[in-house]
Amino acid sequence: KNAAKIVNEALNQGITLFVSDNKLKYKTNRDSIPSELLEEWKQHKQELIDFLTQLES
């Protein structure tokens, strides 16, 4: 999976991924984040940080 797909899947579940101080963060109104999503974010962390940083610049 690529970073764009992961970010879109998160958005579809009401979760916004973003970068703050070079760290991957998220915002959501959900009570909890599915563990498989958290695991996927960890596996692709640097790719996600790079992707989101490019989007914001």
Results as ranks from 00 to 15, higher is better:
E36S: 10
L11N: 07
N12V: 13
V7W: 09
K5W: 12
D21T: 03
F18Q: 05
D50R: 08
K5E: 14
L48D: 00
D31N: 11
S57E: 12
N2D: 14
Q54P: 06
L37P: 01
L37M: 14
N2M: 11
L37G: 01
H44S: 05
K1E: 08
A10Y: 02
R30H: 07
I33A: 03
F51T: 02
L52V: 02
L11G: 05
L37A: 04
N8I: 13
L55G: 10
K27L: 09
S35C: 14
Q13M: 15
N22M: 09
S57C: 11
L38S: 04
Q54Y: 10
W41Q: 00
E9S: 06
N29S: 13
Q13N: 09
K42Y: 14
T16V: 15
S20D: 15
E9W: 06
H44N: 10
K1T: 11
E39N: 09
S35N: 12
E40T: 12
G14R: 04
L37C: 05
K27A: 10
G14P: 00
N12Q: 14
Q46I: 07
V7L: 06
D31M: 10
N12F: 09
S32L: 07
D50G: 06
A4Y: 08
K25R: 13
E39S: 07
V7H: 05
E39H: 07
E36V: 09
T16W: 13
L37H: 03
K27Q: 08
E56H: 13
K5Q: 15
K42P: 01
I15N: 01
L24V: 05
T53K: 12
E39C: 07
A4H: 07
E9F: 06
E56P: 12
G14N: 05
Q43R: 13
E39L: 09
A3W: 05
I33Q: 02
L37N: 03
F51W: 09
I49H: 03
N2A: 09
V7C: 05
T28F: 04
E9H: 07
H44D: 02
A4K: 10
K27D: 06
L37Y: 06
K27W: 08
D50E: 14
K1D: 08
E40I: 13
F18V: 06
R30G: 10
K23H: 08
L48E: 00
S35M: 14
Q43L: 13
L11A: 12
L48S: 00
K1Y: 10
V19N: 02
L52E: 00
L37W: 08
N8V: 11
A3R: 02
E47C: 07
A3V: 13
Q54K: 14
L48R: 00
F51I: 03
Q43M: 14
E36M: 08
